[in-house]
Computed example of a mutant assay.
Amino acid sequence: MRQTHAKPPLRSLQVFEAAARCGSFTAAGEELGITQSGVSRQVSDLEATLGVALFRRKGARLSVTPAGERLARQLGDAFARTWSAVADARASDQVVTLSMLPSVAARWFAPRLGAFMAAHPNIDLRITASRHLVDFTAEGVDAAIRYSPAPLRDLDALKLGTETVTPVCSALYAEEHALRAPADMYRATLLCGDIPEDWPAWFDAAGCSHPPPTGPRLGDDGAILQAAVEGQGVALGRSLLVADDISTGRLVTPFTISLDASHAYWFVRPKGMAPTPAINAVKNWLIGQFEE
C-alpha cells in the first residue's frame, strides 16, 4: 500500500482499535453503535491513509497483521488513559473542599455529615478544619464557613446565620452547685474561651456588677464545651455549637440570660470564580441547615 502523510481521523483509529480488540467487525460495530459495513469502511480508509495493511482477510475470516497488533496495543493504552482523564475531569466537578473552624467541624458539622451524604451521595465533600483564614488558591479550598463580624471584601459572601451566647454546663454540675440564680455563679468554675463575648459582659447583662474571677482558659471552643460536658465548670456556649448537646441532655442552660454574638456565620468563596453545581449544592444545603 502507498503511505500518505495525512493524519488519520480519530474516529477511524477508535473503530480500528475496537475491531482489533473484538476480533470482529460486527462485534465492533455493536460496541460503537455503527454497522458492520461502517466499521469495514473506516478500517479500509485508515489502511489507505497509513499505507499499511492492518487486517488479513481470507473469506469470512479476519486476523490482525503484526503492524495492526502494534497499533492496536498502543491505541488501547492511549484510549484507556484518555477515558481515565475524562472520568477524572467529571469526578473533579463533584469534589468540594470546605474549610471551617475545628469547633464548627466537630460539634456542628460532623453530626450532620450523614444527612449531607444522604442528600448528595455523588458529591465528594472534603472538610478542612483550621483556625487560620485559608488561602483558597494556595490550599485548594473551594469555599469556607467563616465566623466573623463581616467577611473580607475580596470574597463573595452569603450570611448563613447569627447566634447567641449563654452559660452551659452538665446537668449534674448545675445540680451540685445549685445554679438557680446568676448570683449562684460566684461558686462555679467559669471556663473561658477566646470569643468576644466574655464573662464580665454576661454578668453585666445579668445585673451582677462585680463578676467573680474566671477559671481555666482554653483556646478552642470544642475543648471548652467538652470540659463543660465532663462537669469541669460552666462555659459560655455559642448556640450553634451547643444545640445538639442541649437536645441530647449532655449540656443544660441554667439561665435564660444570653448575649447576642457579635460574629455571624458566612459562606464565602473567592470572587471571580464561577461555582460548580456541586459547590452550589453544598451552599444550598448549608442554608437549609441554618434555617432549621
Rank of each mutant, 00 (worst) to 15 (best):
T253C: 15
V268W: 01
T35F: 02
A205T: 03
A85L: 12
Y173K: 02
A235S: 01
C22L: 10
V168F: 02
D245H: 13
G23W: 04
Q232R: 14
L98S: 12
A143C: 15
T26Q: 12
V15M: 12
E30C: 00
A119H: 04
G288S: 10
V229H: 04
D221R: 08
A118L: 05
S148P: 00
M273G: 08
P102A: 10
A91Y: 02
G222L: 11
P182Y: 00
M117H: 07
T253E: 15
D156Q: 06
L62A: 03
D156C: 04
D45G: 07
S92Y: 08
T214N: 08
A174P: 05
D221F: 07
P151D: 01
Q14S: 08
C169M: 03
A144E: 14
S239W: 02
D124S: 14
G140D: 14
A6Y: 01
H120L: 00
G193N: 05
A228T: 03
R57V: 03
C22P: 00
I224D: 00
T164S: 12
A243T: 06
T49N: 12
P211D: 06
S44Q: 11
P200C: 08
A235H: 01
K271F: 00
S239P: 13
A174S: 04
P9M: 09
F290P: 10
S262N: 04
F109H: 08
I224N: 13
L190M: 09
L240N: 11
A53G: 11
F136G: 11
P151W: 04
A144W: 08
V242K: 04
A6P: 02
R146E: 12
L241E: 06
A201V: 03
E17S: 13
S170L: 09
L13C: 15
E17W: 03
M1A: 15
R70M: 06
S170T: 05
K159G: 10
A181M: 12
E175N: 02
L101E: 10
L13G: 03
I127D: 12
M100V: 06
A281R: 02
P275R: 04
I224H: 04
A60E: 06
L191V: 06
E163Y: 09
L75V: 05
L259I: 05
A243G: 04
L10S: 15
R217E: 03
T97D: 05
V64I: 14
S148E: 11
F267Y: 08
R107A: 10
G38L: 07
W266H: 11
L46A: 11
H177K: 09
R131P: 12
R90G: 15
S99T: 07
A150L: 14
L251H: 10
G237P: 10
Y186P: 03
N284I: 05
T137Q: 15
W199Q: 12
E30G: 00
Y173P: 12
T166C: 15
G76M: 09
